[in-house]
């Protein structure tokens, strides 16, 4: 059996360096690789290009990397809720490429699945289409988008086994499965790591072939960005 298990986060992130391109799973703060982000903060490498749907908040998620000026460029679909992000963007310290959310997901999946590029109608006729090839299919206009090219993908799952198989929970799944195998090295952190054979193969969301390193995560905060509740009556 092939084992993907590594001892801890520092072995999992072996080889990361300044100037690299990283993918981060998560939507808002849900399903973000908290341990990998904390280790990147500790390593304090910089000039990073980060592909992530959002950019965290001021004191959590990718906001922690922004705070230390480790990020050179963000590729995201939505970057609100982060004052430091705004400051760095407006001062020109931080380069930002905003792309449609479905295009972001598909550019990950294309990299995972071996498609160099694809056509999508999203963004046609808008500034997103500027400088891009366009083409009509079945009477509708589409633009050409390319697969991402990243060095590391950092994903977070609920459960995983030593063979690298992953199971996600709820909407914390989001971009995580699409980023597995979409970079040269995929690092998965999980809330619960079990020996291979313990997870039912029928229940696996992401086969271990897409993952190079897996480790048992620790101290998950799982912060809630917008706590909304209803009253009992």
């Amino acid at each position: 059996m092939i084992t993907k298990k590594v001892a801890d986060v520092s072995s999992a992130l072996k080889g990361v360096d300044s100037g690299m391109t990283f993918m981060f799973g998560g939507f808002g703060l849900s399903g973000i690789p908290e341990n990998a982000i904390a280790e990147l903060v500790r390593l304090n490498i910089n000039k990073l290009t980060c592909i992530s749907n959002n950019a965290g908040v001021d004191d959590f998620g990718l906001g922690l990397l922004l705070h230390q000026h480790q990020i050179k460029k963000m590729i995201s679909s939505y970057v609100g809720e982060n004052a430091e992000f705004e400051r760095q963007m407006l001062s020109g310290e931080l380069e930002v490429e905003l792309i449609p959310q479905g295009t972001l997901a598909e550019r990950c999946r294309a990299a995972q699945a071996g498609f160099p590029a694809f056509y999508t109608p999203a963004g046609y006729g808008t500034e997103v289409a500027q400088g891009k090839e366009s083409r009509e299919f079945n009477g509708k206009m589409h633009i050409l988008e390319y697969a991402f090219d990243a060095d590391f993908a950092f994903v977070k799952a609920w459960k995983g086994d030593t063979a690298g198989n992953l199971i996600f929970k709820g909407t914390a799944r989001n971009f995580n499965p699409n980023m597995c195998g979409a970079a040269k090295i995929t690092v998965a952190e999980v809330e619960e790591l079990v020996p291979a054979g313990e997870l039912d193969p029928n229940e696996i969301h992401m086969p271990g072939i897409f993952i190079q390193r897996i480790f048992q995560g620790v101290n998950y905060e799982k912060r809630i960005e917008q706590r909304t509740v209803r009253q009992r009556n």
């Binding site: 939507f27 808002g28 703060l29 849900s30 399903g31 609920w158 929970k169 709820g170 909407t171 914390a172 799982k222 912060r223 809630i224 960005e225 917008q226 706590r227 909304t228 509740v229 209803r230 009253q231 009992r232």
Partner: peptide, 21 residues
Amino acid sequence: GPFPFEGEEDADIINAGKQTI
């Protein structure tokens, strides 16, 4: 579905507005 009752919020179950659901 609707928002959860207080105390039943789950960080892993949110909508596109990042609200607990």
